[in-house]
């Protein structure tokens, strides 16, 4: 076990963290702006993977076009779902919101089973990432770098969008006081449609980006949504940088856990989440809830 070996594990953890970030940041945004806990978030992540497969017919040369198409379809589907379903339960207690999105999870999982079957759907590595790269003499898949880059660029663009554009300012305002925002003349329902669309598009992109490394199955949705919850709770709901921090933490904990205590690797993320909730329930970078009097 030399230095290169550890560097490889670190890189693996970061690559995993990258897809986790794409998956969770939308969940965080949607909860922050809309107050909706989207149990179906992992299902859209799964749809992203299957859509990439369907758009390219499983051929590696359609990879780049396929990714863009997945991003666009993700947005359209997200906007559509918000308009048709989510919109009806804003005024309801949060139990009903959770149940509605849970119903969507069940439906999407079975639709995928119906259209794609229950088996694995694998995707070949795109040509550009065929050869390995070397780090301290240890070979590693060059695709790792693409995943990390994709997440970094997405985080940067999202940061610019939220903190440097008017639309982003509205979204941040919606997390704090929806009624005030509406009183100022912002079309909040439309804003919600956009937020949901963006969140879903990112999740779909994350699922699609993972496909060359990991085959898609109908069961991946449930695992994904639980991982996304863990990331978001650790990082802090409604915080982009929190989602990033949470994803990196979980990615590294997962990679190191598999290395040192493989039997218990599954337990660590949950333990970390429970610990966070106990010590800092609003998450590492979240805001403590305002005390209502």
């Amino acid at each position: 076990m030399d230095l290169g070996f550890y560097a490889l594990q670190l890189l693996t953890g970061l690559a995993y963290a990258s897809t986790l970030f794409l998956l969770s940041v939308g969940l965080s945004l949607i909860f922050g702006a809309m107050g909706i806990v989207n149990f179906a978030h992992g299902s859209f992540y799964m749809l992203g993977a299957y859509f990439l497969y369907a758009f390219t017919r499983g051929q590696a040369d359609g990879f780049w076009g396929g990714l863009l198409l997945v991003l666009a379809t993700g947005f359209v589907i997200g906007a559509f779902v918000e308009r048709i379903f989510i919109r009806r339960v804003y005024a309801r207690p949060e139990e009903y919101q959770i149940l509605l999105t849970y119903a969507l999870l069940l439906i999407i999982e079975d639709l995928v089973r119906f259209f794609f079957g229950t088996g694995y759907r694998a995707f070949p590595m795109p040509q550009a990432f065929a050869g390995p790269l070397f780090l301290l003499g240890t070979p590693f898949p060059s695709y790792y770098l693409f995943l990390i880059g994709l997440a970094a660029v997405s985080a940067l663009l999202l940061g610019i969008f939220l903190y440097r554009t008017r639309l982003g300012a509205w979204i941040r305002a919606a997390t704090q006081d929806r009624e005030m925002l509406e009183a100022l003349g912002v079309n909040v329902p439309l804003l919600y449609t956009v937020v949901f669309g963006v969140g879903i598009a990112l999740a779909a992109l994350g699922g699609a980006a993972l496909l060359p490394m990991q085959a898609a199955t109908p069961g991946m949705a449930v695992d994904a949504v639980i991982n996304a919850f863990i990331v978001v709770v650790i990082g802090g709901l409604a915080s982009v940088w929190g989602a990033l921090l949470g994803a990196v933490l979980i990615g590294l904990v997962q990679a190191l856990g598999v290395l040192f205590l493989p039997e218990w690797a599954m337990v660590f993320p949950f333990a970390l989440m429970a610990l966070t909730l106990l010590l800092r329930p609003w998450g590492l970078l979240g805001r403590p809830p305002a005390v209502r009097t």
């Binding site: 709770v233 039997e263 989440m273 429970a274």
Partner: peptide, 25 residues
């Protein structure tokens, strides 16, 4: 001691933790 959504999440987390233990042990 946690409020609403955090209560829901923490109960979920503990249940999944037990699931992970039962699954691996």
């Amino acid at each position: 001691r946690l409020s609403r959504i955090y209560f829901t999440m923490l109960t979920l987390a503990f249940a999944q933790l037990l699931y992970a233990v039962a699954h691996k042990w």
